[in-house]
Amino acid sequence: MRVGVQIQPQHAAYADIRRACAEAEEVGVDIAFTWDHFYPLYGDRDGAHFECWTVLAAWAEATERVEIGALVTCNSYRNPDLLADMARTVDHISAGRLILGIGSGWFERDYDEYGYEFGTAGGRLDALARDLPRIRRRWERLNPQPTRRIPVLVGGGGERKTLRIVAEHADIWHGFGDADTIAHKHRVLDQWCARIERDPGEIERSAGVSPRPGRFPEDARDYPAAAEKLYAAGTRLFTVGLDGPRYDMGPLRDLVAWRDSRGSG
C-alpha cells in the first residue's frame, strides 16, 4: 500500500507549496503530486496559481525520497515529444523518482485562455491514446534516456475509452468515487485487460480520498475508514488533496498512520 498527497498549487505562495511538499515527505508520504492547470479550480477563479512542470522540477531538487508527479498532466497542453523530454529531465533531476501522471484534459478555461483547441472529450481521449506510444518512443531516443522505465499513471473513469487506454498503456490507474464505484471500474478495467491479454495485476489501482463532495466518498472526513472501504475494493494507492495556503497535514498524517498500522497489504 502507498499513500500520496496532491499539494494543490493554488491560492498559495510558492514558499507555502514547497514547505508543504517537504513536510509531506517528513510525514512519510510515498508520492507527492501537483496538478496541471493554469487557473484555480475553485475559490477565487483568478487567484494565485503556479504551473505544473516548473513546480515538479523544483520538487525534484527539494526532496530526497518521495516519488513526484502530476495528478494529472494534460496531454493537450504540450507536444508529446516535448512532454517526454520534460519528463525525462525531471526524472534525472530527481534521480529516478518521477511518475508521469497523464489524462486527456477537461478544464475548458485552460484551453480558452491559453489558445488550445478544446474539441470534444472523445477527440481528446483519441489524442491521448495516440500520444502515449509516441512519448515512450521519444524516451528510447533521448540521450541520456530516462534513469528507469518511467511509470505512467492514467487518470479518469470512462469505461469505453479511458479504461481501454489504461489497459493498453498504464502502470497505474487513478479514479474517483466511493468504494462501489471504484470496484465497478476495476472490473471493467480487468475486462479490458482480458481483451488484450494483459495481466491486470500489472496495473496499480489508485483512488482519491478527500472530504470534498461530489467526486469523493461522502464519509471521507474519516480518512482511514474511507481508505479501508477503498482497500476492500482493490485500491492500493490512496491520495489526499490538500488546499493552500495552510496545507493541513492532519488528514495525511491519519492516512499514513493507517497505512503503517495496516501493513504492506
Rank of each mutant, 00 (worst) to 15 (best):
L82H: 11
L82M: 15
L82S: 09
L82Y: 14
L82D: 08
L83E: 02
L83K: 00
A84L: 12
A84D: 08
A84W: 10
D85Y: 09
D85I: 03
D85V: 01
M86I: 06
M86W: 13
M86Y: 06
A87C: 11
R88G: 01
R88A: 10
T89C: 04
T89R: 06
T89Y: 10
V90K: 01
V90E: 02
V90I: 15
D91Y: 11
D91N: 09
D91G: 03
D91R: 03
D91Q: 08
H92M: 10
H92Q: 14
I93A: 13
I93G: 05
S94K: 08
S94C: 01
A95M: 06
A95G: 05
A95S: 11
A95E: 14
A95F: 08
A95T: 02
G96N: 07
L98N: 03
L98S: 00
I99F: 00
I99W: 12
I99M: 07
L100G: 03
L100E: 08
L100P: 02
G101K: 10
G101I: 11
G101P: 06
G101V: 10
G101T: 09
I102N: 08
I102A: 05
I102F: 12
I102D: 04
G103L: 15
G103I: 08
S104R: 11
S104G: 09
S104M: 13
S104A: 15
G105H: 08
G105Q: 12
G105I: 11
G105F: 13
W106S: 03
W106G: 02
W106Q: 04
W106E: 01
F107K: 01
F107R: 01
F107S: 02
F107L: 07
E108I: 05
E108D: 12
R109M: 14
R109A: 05
R109C: 12
R109E: 04
R109V: 02
R109Q: 13
D110N: 14
D110Y: 15
D110T: 02
Y111S: 00
Y111W: 09
Y111P: 03
Y111K: 08
D112F: 13
D112N: 10
D112L: 10
D112M: 14
D112E: 15
E113Q: 15
